[in-house]
Amino acid sequence: MENGITFQNISEKRMSFEQVFRCIIQFMEKDPTGNFRLMFGTDSQVHGSLTKFITGIVIQQERKGVWACFRKVIVHRKMTNLHERISYETSLTEEAVSMFTKEKKEQLIQIVLPHIYKGASFTIEGHIDIGSGNRNKTRIFVNEMISRMKSIGLEAKIKPHSFVASSYANRFTK
């Protein structure tokens, strides 16, 4: 496993990034005329004396299904400082995105490119588990985290549109 980083989902454990990338390619090649969204997001949960972080990678073909996997990172201390935790969640998302090099993104774009005139599309999104509502404690970090996502070329999504972080990843932090 390169860098010791592994991913898993409900059917496979210990997937390398290359295996994840192949699964995404296979998913897209099944129907290259679709509208695809490659989405990344991280959520965390404090458990006793540790904090569990889950980073999700989801490829969605709108109205046709998804393929997803996640990476688990355990920090062996209680991370109670909200800014530190949100910032680390964003860093883990950035790390997952960075595995998709320019060449890898180009490979994915080449799958849909011949079908653009039929309505095919491909977007990349960074989902952040924060919200801008008045009662949301994370609202003071919205601009900072959105800027970080945009700086690496992602369309940033926050609650209620950040479902990879707030729903998919969240499910595995419990």
Rank of each mutant, 00 (worst) to 15 (best):
S16D: 07
G4Y: 04
E2W: 07
S162P: 05
K52S: 06
Q8S: 15
E155L: 09
I152G: 07
N136L: 06
V97Y: 07
M39K: 14
N134H: 04
H115Q: 13
G56C: 04
T42N: 09
H115C: 06
H115L: 07
E62M: 10
V164W: 12
V75Y: 02
E18M: 09
K159D: 06
M79D: 03
S16W: 12
L50W: 08
G133I: 00
T138H: 05
M145Q: 15
S151I: 00
G153L: 13
H76I: 00
E84T: 14
V164R: 10
E94P: 00
N134T: 01
E29S: 10
I124E: 12
M1T: 04
C69S: 10
S151P: 05
K64Q: 15
N9M: 08
N143W: 05
A68N: 12
T138I: 01
K118I: 01
K157H: 06
V142R: 12
M79I: 15
H76V: 01
S162G: 09
Q60T: 14
V73Q: 12
N136Y: 06
V73M: 07
T80R: 05
N136A: 12
E155T: 14
K102I: 08
T51I: 06
G119K: 09
Q26L: 10
I24V: 15
E106I: 00
S16C: 02
T80D: 13
A68M: 10
M145T: 09
A165E: 02
G56R: 03
V97L: 12
E12C: 10
Q8A: 11
M99Y: 14
K105H: 04
G48M: 02
H47Q: 11
T42K: 04
I24E: 09
P114W: 13
V66S: 10
T33M: 11
T173Y: 13
F122K: 14
T42D: 06
I54K: 13
A169L: 05
K64M: 05
S49E: 05
R63C: 02
Q61P: 00
G126Y: 14
C23E: 10
G133S: 07
K174T: 12
R63W: 05
Q107E: 14
G56Q: 05
A156D: 03
E106R: 13
N134E: 03
A68W: 12
K78A: 03
I130F: 08
G131P: 12
L50P: 00
K150M: 14
N35C: 09
S166V: 00
I10N: 11
E62F: 06
I74V: 12
R135T: 04
